[in-house]
């Protein structure tokens, strides 16, 4: 499904070069639910951005759904993002001036679906996330958890092959966080592959598999108690 080998990513500014990922390799299989953990600044978001084709990388190879997506032009990358990937952000990233219905509609319009198809998809995903009755609300009229549900509906409406989530519960209190996680698990149970970055070891434990990133590399250490491992890794580095 998603296969990266020897991927490296370097951020260059005038003063410093940051090796955000180095010799990074990961293989996510169809239908998996993977948690990505690691200390702050270790490269989790960088990995997710590259996986989601939001950023390019400097070395190595990346196969998504069997396709080498490392050398696509911007237009094709937009297309792949639109059709194969669903993104969920820590800050929800809804468009504040559009109501719930129109927010979910955004990627479907870029996809070029006709109005009837879009309506069908919007209504069914909003029902799935439990917000079928809120389609005329604007984001500011919703709670954080509800906003994240709308964002999940938006990510799912185009039937993506893989869902990428960067700290999807980071801005939510623990009750709402648990509900969102249950929703994500539910989506995974319906067959969508999921890669989720999280700081929360408890959430990470609920994923089928965890990968732990330290200093831009997948750590060999079993990440079952991530904070401790991270501290040890730092100390020994």
């Amino acid at each position: 499904m998603l296969k990266m080998q020897h991927v490296s990513k370097i951020y260059r500014t005038d003063l410093v070069e940051t090796h955000a990922l180095r010799d990074f390799g990961v293989h996510v299989r169809e239908g998996e639910f993977i948690a990505v953990t690691g200390p702050s600044g270790s490269g989790k978001t960088t990995f997710l951005n590259i996986a989601g084709l939001l950023e390019t990388f400097d070395g190595g190879s990346y196969l998504l759904d069997g396709e080498d997506v490392g050398r696509l032009n911007d237009r094709r990358r937009s297309r792949v993002r639109n059709e194969k990937i669903g993104f969920i952000f820590q800050g929800f990233n809804l468009i504040p001036d559009l109501n719930v219905f129109d927010n979910v509609d955004v990627p479907l319009r870029y996809r070029g679906f006709d109005a009837a198809e879009r309506r069908r998809r919007i209504e069914s995903t909003l029902d799935l996330v439990g917000l079928g009755s809120r389609s005329k609300h604007i984001p500011a009229q919703l709670s954080g958890g509800q906003q994240q549900r709308v964002a999940i509906a938006r990510a799912l409406a185009g039937s993506p092959r893989i869902l990428l989530a960067d700290e999807p519960t980071g801005n939510l209190d623990s009750l709402m966080a648990r509900q969102i996680l249950e929703l994500i698990e539910d989506i995974n149970a319906r067959g969508t592959t999921i890669v989720m970055v999280t700081h929360d070891p408890e959430l990470a434990r609920r994923a089928a598999r965890s990968i732990h990133i330290i200093d831009g590399k997948v750590s060999d250490l079993e990440p079952f108690d991530p904070p401790a491992v991270a501290i040890e890794a730092r100390a020994s580095a």
Binding site: R75, S78, R81, V106, P107, Y110
Partner: peptide
């Protein structure tokens, strides 16, 4: 800016 980045992330091309 953030909204435009988000639109790009969920599939808008530059032309869109």
């Amino acid at each position: 800016t953030k909204q435009i980045g988000t639109r790009r992330a969920i599939g808008a091309s530059r032309f869109d």
